[in-house]
Nucleic acid binder design. Structure first.
Lengths: 211, 211
DNA sequence: CAGATTACGTACCGATAGTAGGAAACTGCA
DNA sequence: TGCAGTTTCCTACTATCGGTACGTAATCTG
């Protein structure tokens, strides 16, 4: 609650610097607290305290609490996406690349902080519509991966869309299960085995039949 | 906000009757408002108003807002579960029964009210732990269905658990996608085709290999 | 009918998201 | 360097909402 300027920073800072440091501090503190206590249970005052910033400063940079959460969420999602993309690019075989990308997703989602924010709180806090909008990155990557692996033009687009949804859902649920399992690594391997099996099955399928 | 007794009901009611009518009214109003505005955006005052009940009455029957949501959620989940169980019992072939049960789940989850409550708001409002605890019904049914279909003792338990998670996740994501799709029915059929394919693949697999 | 128990009503409290308006820090230009 | 103009930040306040305290009315038990 009690807020006072601490430790005067080095004499003069540009507006750019002032802005970016406070927003960064807010994002970092928010990330920590949202993950620890959940979205609604985390008060703005607590966040501002932790960030050593006043509420006035906060409301200068963000429209409201939801937008702050959204910013935190987006950063998280981007970190994950880029990690996956990088992993994906290391493999030539499209099925193997897809598979390794999914491993990266699962490993990256095991971290409790990220898991709480992106998988537990986000749907309720942002709503389904906003979620879908932002999650586009991950989904598009998976859609691309599946399209590549299945072969161009072999299947109608909506069929691949639908498959994307379901594989994505399976991935998320697996991530959540892992995060609370007695032996997460065992579950990770088990989940990956099953994805592998699914992919192999699709692969073996005659090109003309349905996925 | 303004609350007054309306229309004195027929002279004398037992305590049982009084309790059950007020709780029912609360549950129904809450269900409606939670679905329309979301969990956090729905105030207790609004719910009590809609239910024509005072806050005192509410707090006599429920511990707090979260418990009310939980009650609404549980009722929703039970309705769905029993519908699935009934559908399941109509088929002899375990794979077909499982498949038809899943169709029932998807169809039942398309209703926006149920979807908002059970798939969007519940995780954030109740937390992952409580969710897992309550969702047990649906999960257990799917676990049972998969166990039956895969054949007793053919696969280690944890493997079936893991598969359960993932199929369940795919199901949920498919339900959410359907609820916001241009052509939900097409998506439903597409999802079901893909589940069918997955099941057929597992079925065809040699009994000794991994699922 | 009397006393006990259960169901409900009213008035209040603390916390918290959001606002209003001014002070302080920076910027660009004369 | 000094000074208008802009951006960044601070303080004090409000409205709303979940939850509580305590009293009143309805029902039950004997």
């Amino acid at each position: 609650m009690t807020q006072q300027r601490v430790a005067r920073r080095t004499g003069r800072r540009t507006q750019q610097e002032r802005s970016s440091t406070t927003t960064l501090q807010l994002l970092n503190s928010a990330r920590k607290l949202f993950a620890r206590d959940g979205y609604t249970a985390t008060s703005l005052d607590a966040i501002c305290d932790a960030a050593e910033v006043t509420k006035g400063a906060f409301y200068h940079h963000f429209k409201n609490k939801e937008q702050l959460f959204r910013a935190v969420y987006e950063r998280e999602q981007q970190d994950l996406s880029s990690a996956i993309a990088q992993e994906y690019s290391h493999y030539n075989d499209p099925w193997e690349a897809l598979f390794q990308g999914m491993r990266e997703f699962l490993v990256g989602s095991m971290e409790p902080t990220r898991q709480r924010i992106t998988l537990i709180d986000a749907p309720g806090a942002l709503g389904w519509e906003a979620m879908r909008e932002i999650r586009t990155d991950c989904r598009r990557m998976m859609f691309y991966g599946l399209s590549q692996a299945l072969g161009k033009g072999r299947f109608p687009r909506h069929e691949i869309e639908s498959l994307t949804s379901m594989v994505y859902g399976a991935q998320c649920e697996a991530a959540m299960a892992m995060a609370h399992a007695d032996d997460p690594d065992e579950l990770l391997e088990s989940a990956l085995r099953q994805f592998r099996f699914l992919f192999d099955s699709i692969r073996r399928m005659s090109p003309t039949s349905q996925p």
